[in-house]
């Protein structure tokens, strides 16, 4: 399995994945910095009341970004291979079809999860550092805040990685990359939207069950892969 994952990465050119992620980090940080800098100095309407709120917004945006990023990954490495018929080529190798698909899914899942973790740590860290200089958000960093937020990021990260597989089930029906990406945007709109501080994500059961649903639907999509015709 490790070998298969390595081959997948080689095929997809790992560097272009990393490049894409770095770009996403940069855009996220820039966008958040814009909000922070424009609204920060005007004290009448605070942009963030405390660190908890600031870190939550960072996490929400990071998750939204990487759920969509995952759909692009899926549409290239799975849907695209079906469409370009290279999947048929892969299926003529002496490797079980399920393993080939599984290797691809692991990459998507781990990649999404890892990026959410890393982006949260980097961008969160950056903002805490910047704020310690500018002091627009009037709060102090405590271990409690960090631990609480860490636990939040971890559980939501796992849920998001599961959810990132949901678009696959949609895209697989018609082997359409566009459908995959659009459904991921739809998912993000539902899950990550924020209405006066309330979002569906704040009830942790919702993202977790959506994540589980993503894994279940993916399993159902490929359960019969050994028995289908690949034309």
């Amino acid at each position: 399995m490790r070998h298969l994952i390595k081959l997948e990465l080689k095929k997809g050119k790992l560097f272009s994945y990393i490049g894409g992620s770095l770009l996403a980090y940069g855009i996220l940080a820039g966008f958040l910095m814009l909000i922070y800098m424009v609204e920060g100095p005007s004290q009448e309407e605070e942009v963030f009341r405390d660190y908890g709120e600031m870190l939550l917004l960072i996490d929400t945006l990071v998750r939204a970004t990487f759920i969509i990023y995952a759909s692009a990954l899926i549409s290239r490495s799975i849907i695209g291979e079906f469409r370009d018929k290279t999947m048929a080529l892969l299926f003529t190798y002496p490797v079980s079809r399920k393993k080939i698909i599984f290797a691809k899914l692991i990459i998507v899942f781990v990649w999404t999860f890892a990026n959410i973790m890393i982006a949260n740590a980097l961008i969160g860290g950056l903002f805490l550092a910047v704020n310690s200089v500018t002091g627009y958000v009037d709060d102090t960093v405590t271990t409690t805040i960090l631990l609480q937020h860490g636990a939040h990021v971890l559980t939501h990260g796992i849920a998001a990685a599961g959810m990132s597989l949901l678009p696959l089930a949609v895209g697989m029906r018609k082997k359409s990359g566009t459908a995959t990406v659009i459904s991921s945007i739809f998912i993000v709109m539902i899950v990550c939207s924020n209405n006066m501080g309330f979002s569906l994500s704040s009830i942790i059961a919702i993202p977790l069950s959506l994540g589980a649903l993503g894994i279940l639907l993916t399993y159902l999509s490929f359960r019969n892969i050994d028995r289908v015709d690949v034309v």
């Binding site: 079980s96 079809r97 289908v228």
Partner: peptide, 26 residues
Amino acid sequence: LGLVKPTGGEIELFGERQLPGAVEPL
């Protein structure tokens, strides 16, 4: 090659009957 599954009949490759999902002969 196993890409298309037969509706009926049998395939033998290298003297062994092919079962669905068999990858060894590949």
